[in-house]
Design a protein around this nucleic acid. Structure first.
Lengths: 221, 221
DNA sequence: GATACCAATTTGGGATACCACACTGGTATT
DNA sequence: AATACCAGTGTGGTATCCCAAATTGGTATC
């Protein structure tokens, strides 16, 4: 594994894991010393992470992208467009066996599963469902959108009931895809994304003071 | 303007303008000497153009992305998803005055307009229509998709009639958006994209020997 | 003539030195 | 006390050097 990919991966994990808070300033020299690489791979990593939307230019420098509530709403609309298109393709496939792997993924989460894992599987559900469509562009769009949503979803205050409801919706979507009912899968997925967006934005909006108290930059809708 | 942006812009123009053919090898040193910049901005430009899909890694090196007929089909599906979502949003806006600027853009093309300009306006129509939606993600998705399609559309063998038909469809879409009929706008746009894809893939497929004779790498569907 | 092999060259990946510019903190002037 | 100014410090942007690995071209061997 090259240094370039190493720095990119580690820095991404630190940002997604909120070890570096939204809005925090980044300097190439700090990253350089932090990961023991020189500025060349550091700059490559920064350029890549910029296109992922995880970091942004701040004048001449770099900052970790803030949590932007308006952006979350726009991403939800974008997600709906691409995820629904993907799930329609998937439901129309002759071989839809791949969804059983996704169902198994959901099954792997139980009461003893750590929250971190629920979070990851909740993202991967949508990503893998899009991958099944076979359309590389829809897949990448979903993956990138979920990456951007990742931190916000982690900060979301979720209760057990909300998580159970989300999982039930996931299973319902899978069932529709399994039976080849593209229309129902599309409708269930649309509703799921809209509900997910509402819960997310509400949660972050209500908790925005707490987030700011933790030093996280939160941009209002 | 910094060297970094300069190299990126000039190299992108050379690729999109087919001054460097699809499939051609690129070396950082050649770009460096060609544009009088050092390798640092060259590498930044390459990383950015890679995410745009205009260049790709070839083992350790770089090549200009080939024309990929299978990819063109996938992009059409992707385009349809995001463009239709965008046009639905636009048709639902209270202030849809922005579409008159787009109509003026179409009007500016007449019999004496060079082909190059028709090509550019044909791309910009879709990009600007998506921009009107106000959704940054849908806009970027459409812009990036059209960028990827740009070279293939330039190579397309188009007759006057096909162009006139495309323009008529553009006007019809605008009319539907202007009247606020999201459903019709969506249907017209879907049909337009599907037709555009069919003509494009057919044209390139029929002409693939000619393209290869020009040294352009064409990957079959 | 085909092939295995080796040295020279070229490549991208990385490290580092230097620069222009922005920002900071303090100082001198009013 | 307020402000204009200026040197000092740190930043990202750029150029350049080094390196390991891959490619290449020729040569010796069979």
């Amino acid at each position: 594994m090259s240094q370039m990919q190493n720095v990119e991966r580690q820095l991404r994990e630190m940002i997604l894991g909120l070890e570096i808070g939204p809005g925090e300033r980044l300097t190439e020299r700090w990253i350089e010393s932090r990961f023991g690489a020189s500025r060349t791979p550091v700059r490559a990593a920064l350029l890549r992470l910029e296109t992922e939307g995880l970091i942004a230019r701040d004048g001449r420098g770099w900052t970790v992208a803030p949590i932007n509530l308006a952006e979350l709403g726009q991403i939800a609309v974008y997600r709906e467009a691409v995820e629904v298109a993907a799930v329609r393709l998937t439901a129309a496939l002759e071989d839809r066996g791949g969804i059983e792997l996704i169902a198994a993924m959901l099954d792997s989460c139980d009461a003893e599963t750590p929250r971190e894992e629920w979070h990851r599987v909740g993202l991967d559900f949508h990503i893998e469902l899009a991958r099944l469509s076979g359309n590389e562009f829809l897949f990448r769009a979903v993956r990138d959108a979920m990456t951007r949503l990742s931190r916000a979803r982690w900060l979301e205050v979720r209760d057990e009931k909300a998580l159970g409801r989300a999982w039930a919706e996931h299973y319902a979507i899978l069932a529709a895809v399994r039976s080849g009912d593209a229309e129902q899968a599309a409708q269930l997925l649309s509703a799921h994304i809209a509900g997910s967006r509402d819960r997310l934005v509400t949660s972050l909006h209500d908790d925005r003071r707490g987030l700011r108290a933790r030093g996280f930059a939160v941009v209002a809708a």
